[in-house]
Design a protein around this nucleic acid. Structure first.
Lengths: 122, 122
DNA sequence: TTACATACATAAATTTCTTATGTATGTAAA
DNA sequence: TTTACATACATAAGAAATTTATGTATGTAA
C-alpha cells in the first residue's frame, strides 16, 4: 500500500506562515544563490528551529508561480540517481526580494506594535 | 447612486496580515474589555501607524466566527441614533488569547530568524 | 522487506481575505 | 440643500494561499 513518507506536522506557528512563503523562498535564494525544493524545506526547518515545516503542497506550487512570474530561473540535474530542480533568482527576482523584505520588516514591526509585543528594551 | 463610503487601501504590509486577524481582535479586547467593530478598525489603524487597515469584509465575518466559536460575547446598544454591537472576551476567549499571543510571539521570532531580520543588538 | 529519507508533482477542499454591494444615520461644507 | 465624508452594521462573489491527500520514483539502513 502506498504511504506518504513526508510527515506533515501541524503547528500553531505554522498556521501563521500565510503570506510569507514567497518572501522566505526569495530571501533564502538571495543568501544561497542556487537551491532545490527539498533543500529549501530543510533550510526553513533548520533556521526556524523546527517551528516552520513547509509542506510540498505549498512549496512546489509557489516555486512554479515564482518561476512563471519571472522571479526565478531553473535548471534540472540528476544527482545520485534522483532528479533535482535547482532554482535561482532572476534579475527581476533580485529586485523583488528587496521589496518583499522591506514589506516583511515593516509588517513585523507594526504587528509587534499592534500586539504590544515590542521587545521591552527598545 | 450608491457609493461606498469606506475607502479600501491596498498596502503591501496589509497583504501579510493573513492569519493574524483573530489574534489582533482578541488582544485588543483583552486590553480594552469592550469594543465595537468600527472602533476596532480605528484602533488597529492607530496602533499600526496607518499600515494595517481592516476591511469590513474581513472584520465582521471574523467577529461573527469568534462569537460562534464561543470566544466573544456581544451586546447591542443604540448610541447617537446608530446601532453599535459591542464585543467582549468570554471565559474561553480569555484563555484563548493567551495561546494565540504565545503562538504569535513564537511566529514572529522564528520568522525573524528565517529572514535574518533579528535586531542587530540582541 | 520494511521503514525512512530524498525528490519531484498535482489536485480537491478549506480557510482567509479582497472587492463589491447594500442599508442607515450624523455632520459639515458648498 | 445636497454633496461629501464619517460612523456603523452586514453579506456575498471571487481570488489567493494554504492544508490535506494522493501519486511516482530512487537510495539506504535495519
Amino acid at each position: 500500500m502506498y504511504v506518504n513518507k513526508l510527515y506533515i506536522c501541524r503547528m500553531s506557528s505554522a498556521k501563521l506562515l500565510k503570506g510569507t512563503l514567497q518572501t522566505i523562498i526569495l530571501k533564502l535564494l538571495e543568501d544561497k544563490d542556487r537551491m532545490y525544493g527539498y533543500e529549501i524545506t530543510q533550510k526553513v526547518k533548520e533556521l526556524s528551529d523546527g517551528e516552520f515545516k513547509l509542506t510540498e503542497g505549498a512549496l512546489y506550487p509557489t516555486l512554479h508561480k515564482l518561476e512563471a512570474d519571472g522571479l526565478l530561473e531553473t535548471s534540472t540535474e540528476m544527482v545520485d540517481g534522483r532528479v533535482r530542480k535547482y532554482y535561482s533568482l532572476s534579475t527581476d527576482g533580485k529586485a523583488e526580494v528587496q521589496h518583499k523584505m522591506s514589506d516583511a520588516a515593516l509588517f513585523i514591526e507594526k504587528l509587534q506594535q499592534v500586539l504590544n509585543l515590542k521587545p521591552s528594551i527598545g
